[in-house]
Write a protein that binds this DNA or RNA. Structure first.
Lengths: 242, 242
DNA sequence: GACATTATTTGACGCAACGTCATAAGATGA
DNA sequence: TCATCTTATGACGTTGCGTCAAATAATGTC
């Protein structure tokens, strides 16, 4: 029994090692440079051993995605515990999401891949469920804040403004901003500010439109932005600045 | 001269044939099924000939993207000539964008690919410029409407609400909604409406928040939705329904 | 129409990467 | 110590990309 667990732990640790290595290669050399041979060489095992852990390259991408989403869950969780009103807590999610995209640019972009059908087919069902579960945790955190806000009367409640409307509004805006930011459209050359600069303003506008109190017109959102950054994401922002 | 143009026309037509074929394969069998051999067989030429037109598979994806974006430009252009006020015209863009994503689901999803750096490197510079140009046309149409609205006093003008803010707000929301819709997250099972159902509401909320007159609270946006669909996109919607 | 020259097409070839599997090496237990 | 079961290996088959020398076709000239 003990030896079994030791064995299992060894396997688990190697799995992590594989993902560590794969992620590193992905970041350094892009998706094209990420090959099974390359990973095998790097971890000093043979290709077959890698295949004992992951059934395909897509499976590895999926594994990397799961790790990243766990990071997102952690960032979101921190945001949801931000010491402030519900409006401030939901705003913190937007910042969390954009920091996430900046911390994991390559991964976020390639995560799109596993969303396409013919690639998803090459990933085992339970691994897919893992992603789904993580997505549920992420949306769950946001939904809880929205429900809190409704329960506490921060938002005027009526049918059209149901929680899913607010959630998807913020989510799609956030998601879209992140991906636009990562695409290399030269916003500066088009005389525009970048999506990441503007998502803070626009998400606040959207929340205002849902009449989520306190409105951004009644508070200093730049100060709030700073406060969230320093209180919640000091470490991550330092990492981004170097 | 005449023979030269004939030759050129032949080449151009074959290029179109290649893209037609590639797009068809992409839709029927996914990215994995799209191989250079496959295209060559289909058009009854050899692989080498295909390579005379496109330097790589990525180059073909890029070509397909350009065609799609031309479609988007056309849909946008129609929206911008919608017979109504500026607020209605900009709203029509949102509908256009979502119809576009539904008409070209596979292409839109794979277009993300050519946004990633290591793949973009495999596309010739002038082909990349083509995409950039199209992106400019698309954003240009939207920007013009926003500027019209500002000039005509539909939007209260102040620094923060500069055109790029509105543009990127709508763009990222639209873009994000489309991609979320195409990812196979089971929104229904999560008890939510879908991104495409909600983007209409949320984009209107955002525009309201910019105080873009007439506000959606003062008009029947469901009726407007219907009017835009029937007046501008009858044909496309019929195509989608079958 | 015959010939030279230029342009285009072809498919065999080299190469890289995926994923498999028979065999080798190692661990476990009696 | 030996038998058994588990894990690791890398050679192998396969596929698909992209190249290029040779074949074929088109064009122009006399």
């Amino acid at each position: 029994m003990n030896s079994l667990t030791r064995k299992q732990r060894e396997l688990f640790e190697r799995e992590q090692l594989i993902l560590d290595t794969a992620q590193q290669i992905l970041n350094q050399e892009g998706l094209a440079g990420l090959t099974m041979e390359r990973i095998a060489t790097e971890i000093q095992y043979s290709k077959g051993t890698v295949y004992n852990h992951f059934s395909s390259k897509e499976d590895i991408i999926n594994g990397i995605s799961c790790r990243c989403m766990n990071n997102l869950v952690e960032l979101f969780s921190r945001a949801s515990h931000f010491c402030g009103n519900n409006r401030e807590r939901i705003s913190a999610l937007v910042i969390a999401h954009s920091i996430y995209a900046q911390l994991h640019p390559v991964e976020v972009q390639n995560m799109q891949l596993i969303k396409s059908k013919d690639i998803r087919e090459r990933i085992s069902a339970d691994k897919q469920d893992e992603i789904l579960l993580l997505e549920q945790r992420v949306t769950g955190i946001a939904l809880n804040i929205i429900k809190d806000a409704m329960a506490e009367g921060d938002i005027s409640q009526n049918e059209q403004d149901a929680p899913d409307g607010i959630l998807l509004g913020l989510w799609s805006m956030s998601y879209g901003s992140n991906l636009l930011h990562l695409s290399d459209i030269p916003f500066d050359k088009l005389g525009m500010r970048t999506p990441l600069e503007l998502v803070w303003i626009n998400s606040n506008k959207l929340l205002d439109s849902y009449n989520w109190k306190p409105l951004s017109t009644k508070m200093d959102i730049q100060a709030l932005y700073q406060r969230i950054c320093t209180e919640l994401y000091q470490k991550e922002l330092q990492q981004l600045n170097k």
